[in-house]
Design a binder for these strands. Structure first.
Length: 186
DNA sequence: AGTTTTGGTGTTGGAACCCT
DNA sequence: AGGGTTCCAACACCAAAACT
């Protein structure tokens, strides 16, 4: 089970299409089919049901999907950890925020950050606080800026970062990160 | 140097869609 | 309803790179 096959699996699962997955991965569609076929033979079960021109995750595929995300996330995290050994800050940072914070509070901070760490590729998503929190929990997001007080679990850390603004409604801003992110208090 | 792996193109078959 | 068109997944085969 290699990361290339898992990437292809995630791309197909996300796009519901071998062709669109191929586009996403800068491959041809047959190459994606091969990767999926390889993965299916490795796990010994079908991961997608081919229903005419449509495809759908099988039960096995549904089970593998979150695991695959975590594996790839872990691999990327390992790369980051190794880069950290040399003091280098780089790679992809997957971050979610609400529209309000993302549009009004984050731009200057993100600008400052990307100027300081030009090797970091920011992958910014606009999501509801609940969705962002869930993303951090299931490993699809590394960081989220939310306006709720989450029920923290062992795989999630949080910092209180003030409030959204001086006019009502004033909501507390919380920064959430995956617990395995090597991050100090912001 | 031979073998294996990976990804490419071209082609085929099936399903969905559109038009008459 | 039926024929033509389009789209998609799969297959066969080939080339290049990597490995032994």
């Amino acid at each position: 089970m290699d990361t290339q096959s898992l990437q292809a699996f995630l791309a197909v699962a996300d796009t519901q299409s071998f062709s669109r997955a191929a586009e996403q991965l800068y491959l041809t569609q047959p190459a994606v089919s091969k990767r999926i076929a390889t993965l299916e033979s490795q796990v010994g079960t079908r991961l997608f049901d081919r229903i005419g021109r449509r495809i759908a995750l099988t039960e096995a595929g549904s089970v593998l999907l979150p695991q695959a995300r975590r594996i790839l996330f872990s691999v990327e995290d390992s790369r980051r950890a190794l880069a950290n050994l040399s003091g280098q800050v780089g790679g992809k940072l997957t971050l979610a925020t609400s529209h309000h914070i993302g549009l009004h509070r984050l731009p200057p901070l993100l600008k400052q950050y990307t100027q300081r760490h030009s090797e970091v590729e920011l992958d910014l998503h606009f999501l509801d606080s609940e969705q962002a929190y869930q993303g951090v929990l299931d490993g699809t997001l590394e960081m989220a800026v939310v306006t709720l007080a989450p029920t923290l679990t062992s795989n999630c850390r949080s910092w209180n970062c003030g409030v959204t603004g001086s006019v009502l409604p004033v909501l507390p801003i919380t920064l959430l990160t995956s617990s395995h992110l090597k991050a100090s208090s912001p």
